[in-house]
Design a binder for these strands. Structure first.
Lengths: 229, 229
DNA sequence: TTTATTAGTGTAGATTTTACACTTAGTAAA
DNA sequence: TTTACTAAGTGTAAAATCTACACTAATAAA
C-alpha cells in the first residue's frame, strides 16, 4: 500500500487531437507536418503536453486553439495510448481526443494562419508513432457516437440539406443509405426544423435547408427520447 | 512547437480498477478500505501508480493481481480522469479500468488473503475522490459493451443456466426481460452449447447448463456476424 | 402419492425495416 | 418561349423483427 507519493514515477503526458471535418463528399482529418525531431518532416496529429495546472479537456482545447485558432467545438476524450516505446525520444503517454469541425466555417483562418492541411480519411499519409492507430480508434468511436447522439451536425454548416446529412452519415458509417428511408427516419426523429430557404448550389431545383433544433432535442431527451440512427 | 521535452511538466499517473462481479442476483464491485491518508478509512477502488517501464494495461493487471491475487481476467480501459484537484494530496491523474470477475471462482483467494469486500451496485458506500464517478461511467460502459460483445459470460461460471444468464443481463441493463423472448434471442445467436448436465440447486426439476462456444463465435465473427443483444 | 416449485416451450399481432420508381421544380440552352 | 436536363422530393407493400402472453413437464420433499 503506497503512502508517500514521492517514490512514484512521473511521466510526460501528451494530448493528441484527431480533428474531423466533412467536405461535401469526404470525411477528412487535419494534419500537420512535424518540424522537429524525431520524425521531423512527417505527418502527425496535432499535439502538445499536459501542463500541471490544467485538466485534459482544457489541454485538448488549448492545443487545438493554439494550432488552429479554433475554439468551442465538440471534443471527446478517446483513449490513453501508453506503449512503453511509442515515442522513441522519451517515455510519454498520449491521451487522444477527437474534435468535430465545420470545415466551411473555419477554412479561412486555417489556411491563412496555420500550416495544417486537410486529408481525406480514405487517403491520408501514414503518421508518426501510433497516430494511425489513434485515427482508426477515433473513426470507430465517431461511428458509434454519431449513431447514438446528434453530433453529426457539428460537421455540417448550421443550415444543411437532407442530401448533405445523408452523405455525411454514409461517409461516416461507410455504407450506402436509401434516400427515402433515410429521410423518413430523420423526419420521424422530429428534431430538425425545415427552413423556407433553399440551397441552389447542388441542383437547378434547389433543395430545402434544415437546422438541428437543439432545444427541441433536449426537451425530448428529458421525456425519455433517445437518438438512434 | 515543442522541441525539448525537458521543459514539460510530468505528472503522477494512477490506475484505478472497477472490479465487477455477479452473484446470483446482484452486480457487485470490489472495494478496499484505504489505510493511508488522505481519506484513510474510507472505501476506495483498487489503485496504484503507473511505473515507467510498463504500459497502462500492464499496470492495471499488476495492480489487480497485487491487491487480489487475480490474473487473466477481462479488463478494459475506461477513461482518464484529470481534474486538477481530484487528489487533494498531490496532482495525480487516474486512468480507470474495469474488470469482470467470476466471483465464485475467486471467492476463496479473495476472502482468505486480501482485505477486499464485495458490495452490491445497488447499495455501496460512497467512495473517495472521483471514484463514484468512475463507477458510474464503468456501469454505462459495461451496459454498452455487454450489448455488443459476448463478455457477459466473464461474470458467470464456465457452465451456467439460461436463468443465470437472463438474470445477469437484467441486472446489468437494469430492466426486466421476458423469459421466452430472452431464450429465443440467445438461441438464435447460436453461440452457446447446451450440455447434458443440469444444475440442481435452483429447482427440483433442475435446469440445463450451457457453455459459451468461443470458437464458434469467432468463426461466425469472421463471416460477418455481430453479437447484439 | 401428493404437493410445490421452477424449467421449458410456440405463436399471433404489432412494429420496424427494407426495397423500390415516378413526378416536380427550376435553370440553362436552344 | 420552349425544351431539355438534373437533382429533389415523395408513399407503400412485403419482409423481418419484436413483443406479449400461459400452460405443461420434471423432480424432490413431505
Amino acid at each position: 500500500m503506497i503512502h508517500d507519493y514521492s517514490f512514484e514515477d512521473k511521466v510526460l503526458l501528451a494530448v493528441d487531437c484527431i480533428i474531423f471535418g466533412f467536405d461535401e463528399e469526404d470525411l477528412q482529418i487535419l494534419l500537420i507536418k512535424r518540424d522537429f525531431e524525431p520524425e521531423k518532416g512527417n505527418w502527425s496529429l496535432m499535439g502538445g503536453f499536459l501542463k500541471k495546472d490544467e485538466d485534459l479537456d482544457q489541454a485538448a482545447n488549448r492545443i487545438l486553439h493554439h494550432l488552429t485558432g479554433i475554439n468551442n467545438v465538440y471534443m471527446e476524450q478517446l483513449y490513453n495510448f501508453s506503449k512503453v516505446n511509442r515515442d522513441p525520444a522519451e517515455r510519454t503517454l498520449s491521451v487522444a481526443y477527437y474534435a468535430l469541425i465545420n470545415i466551411a466555417e473555419h477554412r479561412q483562418e486555417l489556411t491563412e494562419n496555420y500550416s495544417a492541411k486537410w486529408f481525406k480519411i480514405s487517403d491520408y499519409p501514414s503518421l508518426i508513432f501510433d497516430h494511425d492507430q489513434m485515427v482508426q480508434k477515433a473513426i470507430a468511436r465517431l461511428r458509434y457516437r454519431t449513431s447514438t447522439n446528434p453530433i453529426g451536425f457539428e460537421l455540417l454548416p448550421e443550415k444543411f440539406t437532407m442530401r448533405q446529412l445523408q452523405k455525411l452519415y454514409e461517409t461516416i458509417l461507410n455504407e450506402k443509405l436509401d434516400k427515402r428511408n433515410f429521410i423518413n427516419k430523420i423526419k420521424s426523429l422530429d428534431i430538425l426544423v425545415k427552413l423556407n430557404e433553399k440551397d441552389m448550389v447542388s441542383s437547378r431545383k434547389g433543395s430545402f435547408l434544415y437546422k438541428f433544433d437543439a432545444k427541441k432535442y433536449n426537451a425530448k431527451v428529458e421525456e425519455g427520447f433517445s437518438f438512434r440512427l
